[in-house]
Structures are given as C-alpha cells and as structure tokens.
C-alpha cells in the first residue's frame, strides 16, 4: 500500500543519465526549472518538452513509471488550474452564473499546468536516476564554497543522506506494523477523524520506538568506526568530471540558449 509512492524514488537501471555526475544533474535540473519560468510563449515550452523527452528517452526509465509518481500531485495541479481559470480578471470568454472564464485566465491556467507538470517530471527524473548517496555527495561538493560562511556543509549533507536512507526503511517498518495490528483487528480505514486519529496510536508508538532504536544503533555504529564529523575526511570515490559530464553541461547550455531565444520572442 505505502510502496506505491514513487515521488523521490530511485529507479535502478543502466543508462547514460544514471552514470552522469550528480553535479551535472543537480545543476541541470536547477537551470531547467529556472528556464521554465522565463518563457513568454509556447515555443519555449515546446523546446523544454523536446529536451525533457530526450532525457527521458536516454534515462531508460519507463514513462509509465514516471507518470505513476505524478498521481500524488494531480490534486494540487487541479486546484491551481481551477483558481487561475476562474479568478483571473480580463476579457470575458464564457460566463455561466457567477463563474467567468477570461482569455487571460485560460492562458495562465494552461501555462501553469504545463509549467508545473514539466517541473515535477523534470525534478523527479533527477531523483529517479540518482541514488540518494550520489545526490548528497553532489550537494556537498556544490555547497562547499559556503564553508567560508561557517555553514556546516558536511553535517547537513550527512543528515540529509541519513534521512533519505531511512525513508524506505521506515516505510517498510510502517507496513509491517500496520499488518501486525490489522492482524489483531485494528482498523485504519473507517470511522470519523477522531476515531482514525486514535487508531494511529498502535501504529505510531512502535514506529517511534523503532526509529529511536535505529538512530541509537546507527550512532553507535558510527562512533565505533571513529566518525568525528567532516574535518579531514576524504572520499573513497571522489566526484570527478568526465567527458560525458562536459557533454552533459554542453547539452544543457545549448537547450538554455535555444529555449530562451525562442521562448522569449514576443508576437
């Protein structure tokens, strides 16, 4: 039941995109997201769609799998579209009772929907093709300049990678606890809000206890291996740019140049 959440999940397969340096993917995703907000016409989104389709094709992640992860945000998308559609003032297009759809409203709603969908597909593609460890490695490396301002970059990265690592573990644990309590007749699905909140106690107590126990064990294991924070710590596999990474950056910049030139034209 809980395993159906694919947002932020890693999809294991072999592809060029999977092998790219995480910094390329992080930087690329960031630039791609910014580009989505710079376009003034639909040609720009066309360019973005072509770029996105190319990356999806190269990544070997089935499109069906990506779309499955989108289900979670359909509701959010709908709210955005509905509000923009009905609440934007401008030239009237259709009017039924108190609801009016304007030309501007339709335009913004469609733009918003396209923008949000592409934004989410783009960023979930990054997490689908990058292992959490790689992702935090990339972030740590990219944020290194912030050390000058006394930002504890290594510690933040470590906290993030531990948090990410624990998500699947705790999900699986939740699944098991739920099953154990359902086997004892617990009911998580029916009743009003108060009853449902109460029904969560038999789930949350074992879950919290297990989370604390695991945190304790992990801390102990890290201590036993002499972990003392990031000072003087080296990497077994340091991130090094290779030919394909430079090529990756080139592709992103070509896309940006083309997209922004075409996308910012005024007709």
């Amino acid at each position: 039941m809980l395993r159906d959440i694919t947002l932020g999940q890693y999809y294991q397969t072999e592809s060029v995109i999977h092998r790219l340096d995480p910094r390329v993917k992080l930087g690329g995703t960031l630039l791609y997201i910014i580009s989505l907000f710079l376009f003034r016409n639909f040609l720009g989104y066309g360019a973005a769609a072509v770029f996105l389709a190319a990356v999806i094709g190269l990544s070997h992640v089935p499109f069906k799998f990506i779309v499955k992860g989108m289900k979670a945000i359909v509701f959010l998308l709908l709210i955005t579209v509905v509000f923009n559609l009905f609440l934007t003032p401008g030239t009237e297009l259709v009017s039924v009772w108190k609801l009016t759809i304007t030309v501007e409203g339709l335009r913004t709603a469609v733009t918003m929907a396209v923008r949000l969908t592409m934004l989410i597909i783009g960023s979930s593609l990054m997490t689908l093709t990058t292992t959490p460890n790689n992702l935090t490695d990339g972030m740590e490396r990219m944020m290194r300049p912030l050390k000058v301002f006394k930002v504890p970059v290594h510690e933040v990265a470590m906290i993030m990678s531990i948090a990410l690592r624990f998500i699947p573990i705790l999900l699986e644990e939740t699944d098991k606890i739920m099953k154990a309590q359902i086997a004892r007749g617990a009911d998580f699905e029916t009743g009003n809000i108060v009853k449902r909140a109460k029904a969560l106690v038999p789930l949350l107590v074992p879950l919290f206890i297990s989370a604390f126990r695991r945190a304790n064990d992990l801390a102990m294991a890290m201590e036993a291996r002499c972990y003392r924070g990031g000072e003087g710590r080296t990497k077994m596999k340091p991130l090094v740019y290779e030919k394909r990474d430079r090529l990756g950056y080139l592709c992103i910049f070509v896309y940006l140049a083309v997209g922004i030139t075409v996308g910012r034209l005024r007709f």
Binding site: K176, I177, A180, R184, G185, A186, V201, P206, S210
Partner: peptide, 26 residues
C-alpha cells in the same frame, strides 16, 4: 491469528495486560 516475527512491531500499550486486551477489544 497471525503473530509476526518481531514482537516490537505490535506491542504499544503501557502495560502487557492492556496490550493483550487490544485484540479482543477490536
């Protein structure tokens, strides 16, 4: 009745007796 491998996955009450009561109450 199914008893899972880890008792930690189902024990949650403040004492053993109330925990055992959970099933029949349900």
């Amino acid at each position: 009745g199914l008893v899972f491998q880890y008792p930690e996955h189902q024990l949650f009450e403040i004492d053993v007796f109330s925990d055992v009561c959970f099933g029949p109450k349900n």
